[in-house]
Simulated assay, not measured.
Amino acid sequence: MQNNKTVLVTGGTGYIGSHAVVELIESGYRVIVLDNLSNSRDTVIDSIFTITGVVPEFILGDIRNGALLDSVFKSHSIDAVMHFAGLKAVGESTEIPLAYYDNNVNGTIQILNAMKAAGVRSFIFSSSATVYGHPEWLPLTESHPRRATNPYGNTKLMVEGILEDLAACDNEWRIACLRYFNPVGAHGTGLIGESPAGLPNNLMPYVAQVASGRRPTLYVFGNDYDTADGTGVRDYVHVVDLAKGHVNALAYCERNAGRMLAVNLGTGVGYSVLEMIQAFEQVSGKPVPYKVVSRREGDVAACWADVALAESLLKWKAERGVRQMCEDAWRWERNFEN
């Protein structure tokens, strides 16, 4: 299937970006990947080829380089941009906030300037449920007040504000802000997945590395929350489902000019840390020893999505459950080790 549309994917060799590239190619789009490889590897392009039979064009570069962006748009006929090139570790953002504002906010402004100059107006932004801060109600709807509690969340919130202003001032823009909950899993082939540098910030790769023996113990941050088993509850969404949501959002933007859509991407179901550990142990057949330590500052007891808007507007619904999330993450972990 070929639709003759070209999408520039920033951060396209990263965890979520690479899965989006696969889904775009399989939906008939031509894809150009721009990435500075700060937290990924260019060998991901080979894996994308193995999965799809297509080699996306790869450009090594940084989104903050305005001259590079201008040259990319001048030398390619680009119809839309999917923007994944963001720093994303909450803890790290509290240590180096300026780097987060520079990359996530300034970098996005550079992309939007280059798009404006080139007359490209379709933009899919990788936002986050962190923009909601501490939940006042559950499940979280898109109308929930936004008040991020850390620099990473604030960068997402700032960019959402910029995009709202842009859409309000120029009705030719077609913008979707996709607020992710907790992406997990890997592609079913085991060829692409999450490979964080150093100690994982997210639960699933940490659990997988303990199960495989790469790390001795999983640290569970708090077991005294007001939840069924005392551990934090989150909405985990399979990364392939998440990637498919981006393709649906792009199709929505192609049909609807003059507005900015903000929509949750999750499953609408919350699982505790201990439930995820147990599910992974069942799938892997390996023990996941853990140690309970004190809570992390800023963590909330529970957080899950209301997904009605995504279902109604994007015609999207997560299809993969916790067992498949664990199976695919475990397959990726074993392949990655080999």
Results as ranks from 00 to 15, higher is better:
Q2D: 13
N3W: 01
T6W: 15
V9H: 15
T10R: 12
G11F: 14
G11C: 05
T13P: 12
Y15W: 13
G17M: 07
A20N: 08
V21Y: 05
V21D: 04
V22A: 02
L24Q: 06
G28M: 01
G28P: 15
R30W: 05
V31E: 00
I32S: 00
L34P: 05
D35W: 02
N36C: 10
S38N: 15
N39C: 08
V44Q: 01
S47N: 13
S47Q: 15
S47V: 07
S47R: 11
I48E: 09
T50M: 12
G53E: 07
P56N: 15
I59V: 11
I59K: 12
G61D: 14
I63E: 00
I63N: 07
N65D: 15
G66F: 13
A67P: 02
A67M: 12
A67S: 03
D70M: 04
V72M: 14
D79Q: 10
M82P: 00
G86L: 07
L87S: 08
L87D: 07
A89D: 10
G91M: 07
L98A: 10
L98Q: 14
Y100G: 11
N104K: 01
T108L: 13
L112F: 02
S122W: 02
F123I: 00
I124G: 01
I124V: 09
S128H: 08
A129T: 03
T130G: 03
Y132M: 05
G133E: 09
E136A: 10
P139Y: 03
E142I: 09
P145Q: 00
R146H: 03
R147D: 10
R147L: 10
T149L: 15
P151F: 04
P151G: 04
G153A: 12
M158D: 14
I162D: 06
N171G: 06
E172N: 05
R174M: 04
I175D: 07
I175S: 04
L178N: 02
R179C: 03
Y180N: 12
F181L: 04
F181N: 06
F181I: 01
G185C: 00
A186K: 07
H187K: 05
L191D: 03
S195G: 06
G198C: 14
G198S: 09
P200I: 00
P200K: 01
P200Y: 05
N201H: 07
N201K: 11
L203W: 14
M204Y: 13
Y206V: 02
V207L: 13
Q209S: 12
V210K: 08
S212H: 06
R215Y: 15
T217E: 12
A228Q: 07
D229S: 10
T231L: 05
G232P: 10
V237T: 14
V237D: 06
H238S: 08
H238I: 09
V240P: 00
V240Q: 12
N248V: 08
N248T: 11
C253L: 12
N256P: 10
G266I: 06
G266H: 11
G266P: 09
T267E: 11
V269Q: 05
E275G: 12
M276P: 01
I277K: 03
E281H: 09
Q282G: 09
S284I: 04
G285C: 11
K291T: 14
K291N: 08
R296Y: 04
A302L: 07
A305W: 15
V307D: 09
A308G: 05
E311S: 11
L314G: 12
K315N: 11
A318D: 03
A318E: 06
R320P: 02
V322G: 01
R323F: 05
W330R: 07
R331G: 02
W332M: 12
E333I: 04
N335L: 13
